[in-house]
């Protein structure tokens, strides 16, 4: 058993409960034990950082301090949470004066961040700690022959300098590698590392869904059968707003959008219902059917 302080993020407890459901089902199969950080606040998703960096960093330092107290590394299941936390952690770890000031803010609650927290996305854990060969050996229902498009989410890709790409230069390829390990066929397409459009959904829906629509149509044209994402915000955009994207593109796109833990869980033999694959806006039946057959 490997134990992590589990940071759920807001979305897996809100708009994408199937993500929470699937990670909880998958974790024990991988020997993962979670201690959920129930008192941790939202990372600010970048929105708070742009309003007030010190406030956002303090909220994240608060989460880091909670994990330090448990003496556990943090696990995230959201590209955005991961990116925001990585950036905040980088600023706090490299600037002792700043960390000290932030700790003064945290003192009221009796918390202190010592700058030792590590934050790891579930995707990074699979590739770096669990190991892809190990994962492959656990697969009982391989995704054989299924063409799957990885969609990473901006925050785990850029800026690379805050995401430890120097130490882990392959972080931008893990999702494709995991798809292969599960038996699937990763497809190469230009939208893979681009933006899902979610951050501007309420500011400019047309641009937002044109972006997501472009990616899904590209995948469709290349014969992709589903898209897999480690980011619930990308999921909200690609799945939740797929009807609107279809409207702009004048087609019914019909592209199943799968959360990473759902794809892993399915290959590990967990029933689709348990993984919440029935809780999507766009039906996942075509994908799930392919895995069964």
């Amino acid at each position: 058993m490997v134990k992590y302080a589990f940071y759920t993020g807001c979305v897996s407890k809100g708009g994408a409960p199937e993500l929470y459901q699937s990670i909880t089902a998958v974790a024990p199969k991988l020997g993962l034990e979670f201690e959920e950080l129930e008192g941790a606040a939202c990372t600010g998703a970048g929105v708070l950082t742009e309003r007030n960096e010190e406030l956002a960093d303090t909220l994240n330092a608060r989460t880091f301090a909670m994990a330090e107290r448990l003496n556990l590394p943090i696990m995230t299941i959201c590209s955005t949470c991961q990116g925001v936390m990585s950036q905040a952690n980088h600023r706090l770890k490299t600037n002792p004066g700043y960390l000290q000031r932030v700790n003064q803010h945290l003192a009221v609650e009796g918390l202190k961040y010592n700058g030792t927290a590590t934050v790891k996305h579930f995707m990074w854990f699979l590739a770096e700690d669990y190991g892809l060969t190990n994962l492959q050996s656990k697969v009982v229902r391989p995704l054989t022959g299924i063409k799957l498009a990885a969609f990473y989410g901006c925050y785990v890709l850029r800026p690379t300098k805050d995401l430890e790409y120097d130490e882990h230069p392959e972080r931008g390829e893990y999702l494709d590698q995991i798809i292969s390990a599960l038996g699937g066929v990763p497809i190469d397409y230009s939208g893979k590392t681009k933006c899902c459009g979610f951050p501007i959904l309420t500011m400019n829906e047309k641009n937002s869904v044109t972006m997501s629509g472009n990616h899904m149509m590209e995948v469709k044209e290349l014969g992709g059968e589903a898209m897999v994402t480690p980011c619930p915000l990308c999921h909200l955009s690609l799945d939740g707003y797929q009807p609107q994207a279809g409207k702009i593109k004048n087609v019914q796109i019909g592209m199943p959008i799968i959360h990473l833990p759902q794809a892993v869980g399915l290959a590990l033999g967990i029933p689709p219902q348990t993984l919440g694959l029935n809780k999507h806006i766009v039906s996942t039946a075509s994908f799930v059917g392919r895995v069964r057959s």
Partner: peptide, 15 residues
Amino acid sequence: PGGIWDCTHCYFCVQ
């Protein structure tokens, strides 16, 4: 419209 609030935080320009 077309200004600051239309940026989608994709970090490509930063990278």
